[in-house]
Design a protein around this nucleic acid. Structure first.
Length: 486
RNA sequence: CGGGACGUGGCCAAGCUUGGUAAGGCGCUGCGUUUGGGACGCAGAGAUCGUCGGUUCGAAUCCGGCCGUCCCGACCA
């Protein structure tokens, strides 16, 4: 299963790292590292991100959010206004000290996240209870100078969306926090085909400056967890620091309650790691830049007729909303099929002279059955039926991926109450345990097993008893999921 | 910043122990034959062996400094 290749940890064999070249290459732009840990996404890889963007953005529109844009450079002093926030981010800031040929009076930091600059703006924008709530999202790049970058999972610069909302009271802000948390989980399941474990971060893992952080955690094919989206309730922490306040109906100046929530290009990594196999990528149909590739077969006049027919079918399918390509490159059909497998294209259709004569295409699924020779079992579909068959097949494919990922997650998740079982369980999957909640106990568990608390299962059943590691009483009234993580 | 490994055409790499002027594969270019599951033949382009210095008649190879990369750890969407 999980093997290392030169691009980092992937569930793929080392000899299929070529697929990676289709979507990314590691930036190697300078000797002394300004681009260290940065990724360059090729069109196919960026296409996955574009699809994440457009579909997530539509969900935000549905929840009433508007997009805006804020500056990339933030005065250093802004960061310092919220004590926990600056403490959390200070070690990983990129700071601009010189600009326009001279030293700046006050350094500018490249945004690691935008709570502060947006907080500064909100304090000017919000005056009355009539101005609330403010529901804004930003699509942006941010920079965090991590000590150990990992391609897709933790790059120095990454793309994301960050939502920032301000509300009249804590209850409304908390409802917003939970609502967007659910939006992320829905997106992961319905678009990325990844069933998430939902929970609340323990105090040691919560966002710098937040009162509560809610997370969705995906299980990758090696049993490790990947935090894939977070939603934070800030209470009045940032409102206080930036004076985000309004005059209420009783003419009293009142602090807002704020939230923020984000999902990043890490989601591309989640898709790769959650679905990929030893043959390469496996893309969920709703995030596949190409959902169906048509491979014309044959040569000479036969071949030309097949290419022509393939383009005609493709044109028709495009009008039905299918992302389809015709692979008419000067390569053998075997090459093209393996290339499509490598890229994780959900469906591929062979169209040869025999098929054309019969009015069919031979369609194979990326995660479909294979025969004894390792070749895909193929279905004959009438060319005239493709227009309705393909969209339905893509939906079925999505459901099959969800089912596969869900059973994988569930098979590798266990409720655990004793330490010995815990140690073996977190070596390959998730363990749901009772925990005392003490940071030193979390550290102890990490030292011994490399596992960390992913989240408290706040929506799970009530549970009390003693900590799986020490003898102290459990702290949360709920179980906590522990696992190794990226 | 600690602990380990390693720098040889675009990529993967052999050669280093036992110094004698860089093998092979992928990819790339051209021609021809191929094409229902990663084709083949022939021809061709492409390397100051990370860098600086030392030893030597001679250094990819031995010695030293420097630079860089990767992995493990701390950090982390």
């Amino acid at each position: 299963m999980a093997k290392q290749n030169k691009y980092g940890p992937t569930p793929m064999s080392e000899d299929v790292s070529a697929w990676y070249n289709e979507i990314v290459f590691k930036a190697d732009l300078a000797d002394n590292g300004p681009a260290k840990g940065t990724m360059v996404m090729k069109p196919y890889g960026y296409g996955i991100w574009e699809l994440i963007q457009s579909q997530l953005d539509q969900m935000f529109k549905d929840t009433g959010h508007k997009n805006a844009y804020f500056p990339m450079f933030i005065p250093e002093s802004f960061l310092k206004r919220e004590a926990d926030h600056v403490e959390g981010f200070a070690p990983e800031l990129a700071v601009v000290t010189h600009a326009g040929g001279k030293e700046l009076g006050e350094p500018l930091v490249v945004r690691p996240t935008s709570e502060t600059i947006i907080g500064e703006m909100y304090s000017k924008w919000i005056n009355s209870h009539r101005d609330l709530p403010v529901l804004i999202n930003q699509w942006a790049n941010v920079v965090r100078w991590e000590k150990r970058p990992r391609i897709f999972l933790r790059t120095t610069e990454f793309l994301w969306q960050e939502g920032h909302t301000a509300h009249a009271d804590g209850q409304e802000a908390m409802e917003e926090t939970l609502r967007m948390w659910q939006v992320y989980a829905d997106f992961a399941l319905n678009v990325a085909a990844i069933p998430m474990v939902m929970g609340e971060k323990t105090p040691g893992e919560r966002f710098a400056g937040a009162v509560q952080t809610f997370t969705i955690e995906g299980m990758m094919r090696d049993g490790k967890a990947l935090q894939s989206g977070t939603s934070h309730y800030m209470g009045t922490n940032f409102a206080q620091a930036f004076d985000i306040s309004y005059t209420d109906k009783e003419n009293t100046k009142t602090l807002c309650h704020t939230t923020s929530w984000g999902m990043s290009t890490r989601m591309v990594g989640a898709v790769i790691l959650a679905h990929g196999d030893d043959d390469g990528l496996v893309l969920p149909p709703r995030l596949a830049p190409t959902q169906l590739v048509i491979i014309p077969i044959g040569r000479g006049d036969d071949g030309e007729r097949c290419v022509e027919a393939a383009h005609a079918v493709a044109k028709d399918l495009r009008s039905a909303g299918v992302r389809v390509e015709v692979d008419d490159r000067d390569q053998g059909p075997g090459f093209k099929m393996n290339d499509a497998i490598l890229k994780g294209i959900p469906l591929r259709a062979e169209l040869g002279p025999r098929d054309l004569e019969a009015g069919n295409a031979l369609v194979a699924h990326r995660i479909g059955e294979v025969d004894d020779d390792g070749r895909s079992v193929k279905e004959e579909i009438a060319l005239t039926a493709l227009r309705t068959w393909v969209p339905e097949a893509l939906d079925r494919y999505h459901d099959a991926l969800v089912a596969r990922a869900t059973s994988f997650r569930d098979e590798n998740t266990a409720v655990v109450d004793d330490w010995a079982t815990f140690e073996t369980q977190v070596a390959t999957g998730f363990a749901e345990v009772l925990h005392c909640g003490r940071p030193e106990c979390e550290d102890d568990i990490k030292d011994v097993t490399k596992a960390t608390p992913r989240c408290v299962l706040v929506n799970g059943e009530d549970a009390t008893g003693s900590c799986v590691r020490c003898d102290q009483a459990s702290a949360y009234g709920k179980r906590v999921t522990f696992s190794r993580a990226y």
